[in-house]
Computed example of a mutant assay.
Amino acid sequence: MIGAALVAKAAGAGARVIAGAIGRPVETVRGWLRRFGLRAEEIRVRFTVLLVDTGLDPVPPAETASLFADAVAAVFGARSAVASRWPGLGEVSPWRLACAVTGGSLLTPPRP
């Protein structure tokens, strides 16, 4: 659910529309989007580094109009890089990878 909300926001949808589409309270969705947005630059950098370090022929995602979308694209790019490096792992979603890489702290508030 959270991953779908982040992808929808990166595509330009608002919290109300996203909440309606995934059947979650708008306050919950806003919280997810806000926390991800606060850490977007950190997430973008971390997952771009993972992509470049693990990809067989890495191509970092092109910059978009928003840092939020850039961070989501970096997560998906890192997932593709990991899948190309270790195809035997099977199909791992970008959000399971994000959870593993961040130790489950993808949506925690940024550290001072």
Rank of each mutant, 00 (worst) to 15 (best):
R111M: 06
F68K: 00
A62S: 11
G20H: 12
V7F: 08
K9S: 14
A8W: 01
T28E: 15
P58W: 03
G77C: 01
V82Y: 05
I2D: 14
V75L: 05
P87C: 08
G37C: 08
E41Y: 01
R35I: 00
F36Q: 02
T102C: 12
D53P: 07
F47R: 04
F47Y: 05
G103D: 07
G12C: 13
L97Y: 09
T64K: 06
F36S: 04
V49H: 07
S80M: 04
S66L: 01
V49S: 11
A81G: 10
E91D: 15
A74P: 07
F68D: 01
K9P: 08
V59T: 11
G104H: 06
I43N: 03
G31P: 04
L38W: 10
R34F: 11
R16P: 05
G88H: 14
R46E: 13
G23R: 14
V75P: 01
T48K: 03
L107R: 02
R111L: 09
P61H: 04
S80A: 12
F47T: 03
G23D: 14
A83E: 03
D70V: 01
R35T: 02
V101P: 00
W86N: 09
G37F: 05
A15T: 09
D70C: 01
F47W: 05
V75Q: 06
F76H: 14
C99Y: 14
A98P: 01
G14V: 10
P58Q: 04
R111H: 10
G3A: 14
M1F: 09
A15I: 09
S93F: 13
A19R: 08
P61K: 01
T28N: 15
S66A: 06
V29L: 05
P87E: 10
F47A: 02
A81Q: 02
T54Y: 04
G37Y: 02
A40Q: 00
V92T: 13
I22Q: 14
L6A: 04
A71P: 01
T48S: 14
P110N: 05
V75W: 01
A21T: 15
S80G: 06
R24A: 14
P112H: 07
T48L: 04
V45D: 13
T54W: 07
R24Y: 12
G14I: 11
W32E: 10
E27W: 13
P110K: 06
S80C: 04
A15K: 05
S84M: 11
V17Y: 07
L6M: 13
V7P: 07
D53W: 03
V45I: 13
A4F: 12
A5M: 03
A13V: 10
A8I: 04
V92I: 15
L51E: 06
P87F: 08
A13P: 11
L107W: 01
A5V: 02
G12K: 15
D53F: 03
W86Q: 07
R24F: 08
A62T: 06
S84N: 12
T108F: 09
I43G: 05
A74W: 04
R85A: 15
E91S: 15
R35F: 02
R46M: 12
R16H: 09
S105R: 15
A69K: 00
L33E: 03
A78G: 01
